[in-house]
Amino acid sequence: MDDPKADLRHYLQLARDGLLWKLDGLSEYDARRPLTPTGTNLLGLVKHLAGVEVGYLGTCFGRPADEPLLRYDDAAVESDPNVDMWATADQTREEIIALYLRACAHADMTVEALPLDAHGRIPHSPAEPSGITLHRALVHMIAETQRHLGHADIVRQLVDAATDEVRRA
């Protein structure tokens, strides 16, 4: 039988795994090196997605994370809306990957605990005044992770021309 929740979790996990693969074999310098005019870098994408995972598949459903790196106060966001898009000098690759894995585990617990039609609310979002279902949040998370995986693919290609084709071989 088809299991829509299992299908959604499967595609989200494929994107998560792809994102982490982009860091394999890179030096610390290359993992955090900004290679686009906007400063996009691989560790920043992973850090950003950690916060998005907890936001959409945690906080929206009344299950916020306890970790301070996954929450940003209004003052930090006001001073820099992209505060989560890069690794600071004191954050190692291992710490950011561990943070991402904990964020994914936290999100997975929400998905496991709730039905797809569970209702949540996106804080500070006038675009979704009536809230969001878990189903919609999962679809959003898949789209968001795939979008940033595309960014990561371009950044990784700029570093050493590695693509998913290498991983599949």
Rank of each mutant, 00 (worst) to 15 (best):
L42Q: 09
V46H: 12
R71M: 13
E128W: 14
L35F: 08
G39R: 03
A113C: 04
A65D: 14
L101Q: 13
P34G: 10
R9Q: 14
L35V: 06
A89W: 15
P126H: 11
D80N: 15
G131A: 02
C60W: 02
D164I: 06
P81M: 06
N82T: 07
H48W: 07
D66K: 05
I132K: 14
K5H: 05
G25H: 04
L134K: 09
I122A: 06
V166E: 15
L26M: 00
M141E: 11
A15G: 09
R147N: 07
D73A: 09
G58K: 01
C60I: 05
G131I: 04
L35E: 05
K47I: 03
D73N: 15
R167W: 14
Y72H: 15
E95W: 10
D66Y: 03
N82L: 08
L8V: 08
H140R: 12
A98H: 15
D24Y: 01
K22V: 00
V46I: 14
G120P: 02
H148M: 06
Y29K: 14
L158N: 01
N41H: 13
Y72C: 08
A143E: 13
H48S: 06
T92F: 12
G39W: 00
H140Q: 08
D73P: 06
G150H: 05
A105M: 07
A137Q: 09
T92G: 09
V111A: 11
